[in-house]
Amino acid sequence: MAAKINLNDVTLRFGKFEALKDISLTLEAGKIHGLIGRNGAGKTTLLSLLAAFREPTQGHVEIDGEAVFENPEKMQQVGFIYEKNYADEYQKIPAMLEFPESYRPNYDKAYADYLLKRFNLPLDKPIYKLSKGMQSALNVVIGLASRTPITIFDEAYIGMDAPAREIFYQEILADQAKHPRTFILSTHLVSEMDYLFDNVVIIDHGRLLMNEDYETISAQGASITGAADQVDAFVSGMKLLNEQKLGGTKSVMVYGTLSEQRQLAARQQGLEIGPVSLQDLFIHLTEEAR
């Protein structure tokens, strides 16, 4: 069970401040979408529209072609998981989970129990006493076990240590294989999570920079390594993202696709061509827009 998301010319203003500007995008059903952007780019604001936490000032936010705001059927399909303040949460985990269990039609209790064990979460302690990482893991459990057709994790890993994050990523992939849904993972840990994404959405300053599948995006750049003068000659006229030099060897990252012929030409000259990480592309793209 997965659902498709559509945004049409969405603008959101807070007073004079434009948090989102004219965003139009489609997120396909059944895929893992990575939403990346720098701090304050508008990631959370965008996601809060999908979860019907607020209405856009202009434009439409739709799930499977229907407006989501105050739509009982659609709102039930969206699970929005973000960092919550649990300072006043005196309940214990089992009591906390009763709520999603009773209100989420696809909630899987056995799966939730399994996840609680995997994350090693204590069931007998009040939630406010748990560490930040454990509270985040609890949020993740709620998000995964609810099996909402649209599941949004907004930097849900905050405070989780590396092994716990690893479990989080593994479980997303494992559950996606068995019960496909539309995931949106917003993150700034790009290099750690990029392998999860089927599709990548980059926003900056409230504007949409890119919405492409992973392959297309990763083909938008290349690294070229070899003798300095040869590399310089080869990349002249291309957009450089980064260059590094070690003795006579130079490694350059370029933005733009390299045709097969160009790649072959490079190899014949003894130049090595490698991929550019999403992280590097992201850094470049958001710097450029500044």
Binding site: I32, Y169, L173, A177, Y195, F197, Y214, S218
Partner: peptide, 19 residues
């Protein structure tokens, strides 16, 4: 090994593994 296993194990993107 399935694509998903490979993705999870080697932390390589789905698209890349599938290719």
């Amino acid at each position: 090994p399935s694509t998903n296993q490979l993705v999870s194990f080697y932390k390589i993107n789905h698209a890349t593994v599938s290719k």
